[in-house]
Each structure stands twice: as structure tokens, then as C-alpha cells.
Design a protein around this nucleic acid. Sequence first.
DNA 1: GCGTCCAGGTCTACC
DNA 2: GGTAGACCTGGACGC
Length: 326
Amino acid sequence: MSVHYTNIDRSHVFAEKTLRDTAFGNGEMKDKAKKSTYRISVPANFSFRHTVESHGWYDLAPFRYDPQKSELAYTFRPANGSPEAVRIKEAKGALSLTVFGEAARTEVIAAVKHIMRLDEPLDEFYSLISQTPGLDWAANANAGRLLRSSTVYEDLVKSLCTTNCSWALTKKMVTNLVELLGEPSADGSRAFPTASAMAARPESFYRDEIRAGYRSSYFAEMADSIASGRVDPEKWLDADMPTPELKKEIKKVKGVGDYAAENLLKLLGRYDGLALDSWLRSGFYKKHNRERKCPDRKIERHYSKFGKWRGLAIWCDMTESWFDEK
DNA sequence: GCGTCCAGGTCTACC
DNA sequence: GGTAGACCTGGACGC
């Protein structure tokens, strides 16, 4: 997911000032909001840091991440209510959640489980890679859970924002969407805009305000189809169809091609596709092909031995250096 | 400061 | 099925 990945600048991981300025919204508003804390257990093979920093999503609004405190904040929208901010922190083999708002406990926990992928079984993947030099690190570190948003719709829009542009532009487009269309929570931070809020804006808004360029018509069309119910991305999560068929379904959304569809499929828990983009390709050339370009077919052959896990295998293979001890 | 070039993924038209 | 060109932005570069 170059998504995450295109031209990613990981120096921001330590951009403490920026994080502190924006981490948890308006302090005064936060003080007035109802505060609840919960604790949820995590699987034995779960790593907070490797999940949060698995790809660039933590750097996109409405996520806020403070690596110094190992704290991830996210503003989401409960099914029937106003947006609420939740802080997620590791706490001795569990996760500690602090919520500012009135959301039901079950709803908060369900959202965090979805975001952090706590119910995703990775034992088979770890067993497969643990004997593979160069990939065994991921099994040892419990890496491989790819952070996702609270809804498939949000991940779909973000995926579109990663296509054909630098990471800086991706961040800008997502930030603009949240700041200009997202509804504020009690702590002042904003949730990702609803499809209805997006559908209410004309194409010119996306071109002039969001700075989405030629993607503007895609945003407008996508939002309209989702708001009207013609497309329901949440159904893709439990779709009872083979991955190639689901990929075709996803690609019906204008603006979503092979890369974006396969990237979204990874966030749905299907790793059959590699989601190749320029960043992954250049990483492969450097690591496995003596820095020389090669056809995608060669990359696909290289990872074919990982079967249905190949998309996760290439991602772990290319991101190992992100977690080198600093 | 201005103009030019380039990278990035998808769509459309064409072969 | 494969390929070329257009789409748009922002960064890099030269002047």
C-alpha cells in the first residue's frame, strides 16, 4: 500500500511538535466532554507499534499518532451519534482506550478491534514466513497487521487519495477532506466526512478546495454512489466471493485501478494481490534484482510461494528497514 | 520569482 | 490483451 507508501517520508514519525499541536484537538472542549476508559485484551502475537506504523495510515487524519507516548488517537462516528475521539495506548498486554463522548462501550471496542485488526488470525502467515530468511523478522516482531480506518468507505476514499501523487499530496487531500467536511467531536477533532457530506459538494469543490485535481470527478461520483446506496463498501468486508471477483467489484468505482483495489483488499484481509506501485517496485529492484528494473511478472513469481499471503509477504519484505532499531 | 520538467496511477481510445 | 497519451499537482531544477 504505497499507500501508504508512495514517497513516504518517515521522518514525521518523530515530528513531535506537529504531533503535539494537533494530537487531540481543542483542550478546552476536551475538558467538557465525558471521559470513559476501557481496557481490551490483545492476541499474544500483537504488536502495538508494528500495527500502528505498519503503513502510512496513522499519518492521515483523523488519525493522530504520538510515537513518544506510543499513543494513537482517532476520531470516529458511532452508528447513531456524533463523532467521538478515542485514545489508544498499550497497557501491559492489553490496550487502554480513553474515549471523550457518549458512545456505547461495545461500539468503541468494536471500532478499535477493527482498526487494530485484533481479530485477524495471522498464525498461518507467521508459520509460513518464520522459515524464510529476510521475512522471519516479521514473525518475530509480530508485524503484519495493517492499520485501517473504522469503515471500508473511509479506506476506499483514502486509497483513491494515494493514487498518482506524492505522499505529501495524499496527506493534504485527506486533511482537507476532514477539516472542510468532517464533523467535529466533543474534543474539537474532526471525524472523516460521511458519504452524504461528500456527495453534497460539487466536483468544483474537490478541485478548488480539496486540491484533488483530475480525481475530483471520481470523488463526487464515488460519494454519490455510496450515499445513494448503489455501492456499499462495508459489504466487501464479509463478501462471499473469490478475491478476483471482489476486485472487479471494487474496480467498478471510477478512479480505482489495480493498485488501489489490491491495496483496499489488503485492508479487507485479502492478500492475494501485491498492490504494486512505484515504491514497492523500486524496493524490489533494490533488494532482489540488483537495482535493475524488471517486469511485474518477475515480482509476482518471487512472492508466489507465499500463496494467499503474498501481498502481506511483499509488504513485510519491503518495510523491514522501517523497524530497524534506531 | 518564473518557467520547465518529472513522477505518480488510472482512464480512454486505439490497435 | 496491450499500449500510448492525457489527466493534475507539487517538488526539483535552471535561469
